[in-house]
Amino acid sequence: MRRLIASGVLIMIVYAAVMVISTAIAAPTSMDGFTQFFSPENYGELYGGITGDWQKLGQPFTQLQSELFWKIFLGVITVIPGVFLLHFLIVGAKSFAHDGPQILFFNFFTRIVHWIGAISFALLVITGLLIIFGAIFGGGAPIRLARHIHIINAMVFAVIAVFMFLIWVKDMFPTFYDIKWIFILGGYLSKKKKPVPAGKFNAGQKAWFWLATVGGGIMAYTGYIIWGMNGDLDTVRLYTIVHNVLGMVLISLFLTHLYMSLFAIKGSLHSMISGYKPKEEVDILHSRYKYE
């Protein structure tokens, strides 16, 4: 019994000694750290831990999305059709005789690919704009449906864009006369039938091709990341900005493509339905194209 008490007392003395020594050595350093936490720097660190890296792209994203993007989109969908309307009224449509000899421009497979791509892309543009201007329509179920249609069509277009790329890429590399085409704006400012420097496809069509296929691929990838938030927050923000900016460019060129095919050149839509363009039209608008 006495031995037990003695060993117990001994343990307590050793323990107390260790405590005294350890506090004497460790306390001044470790506890100084404690009081230092009350400094503004440490509070800054604490709030930095909460807000994370918001300052990286959070602020630019918030400002762009709330102040700028919708205004630019509104401008794109009003100014561009307005300019085309003026062009249609002042300059007017080009028309070529459709009863002369015909040249095969687009084979059946190309036309099918084009039309699947066209429908999915048109729906992507419409649903995308519905999401951007969702507040006008009150949001809710219709806009949610627009989002779902957007993702389904994105999957369709992502596949079609690959086919489009493979079909047309050989005719789409830039050439020197493309610069000339850009300077005369493709000859669309007059109704004169003067041969325009362009191969199978003119510079405008080439720009549209690269943006729709490569740009479409970028849209699909960034959209996939935004859809599932598959990445760190700052990447998602960056991709959202890229998706919006590229969307503006694509919608502008999409509207241009629509105007050119439906109104600017009379009956040019038929080339994508039957596959044939009139020889007269090819000789003027695609003067450098060597057909058989």
Binding site: I50, T51, G52, W54, G58, F61, T62, Q65, I131, G134, G138, G139, G140, I143, R144, A146, R147, I226, M229, L233, V236, R237, T240
Partner: peptide
């Protein structure tokens, strides 16, 4: 919640998650 479409923009804008 009836108006929200779940686009996630608010999550990208919110500093507090």
């Amino acid at each position: 919640k009836k108006t929200c479409i779940g686009c996630g923009y608010c999550f990208m804008a919110c500093p507090f998650g």
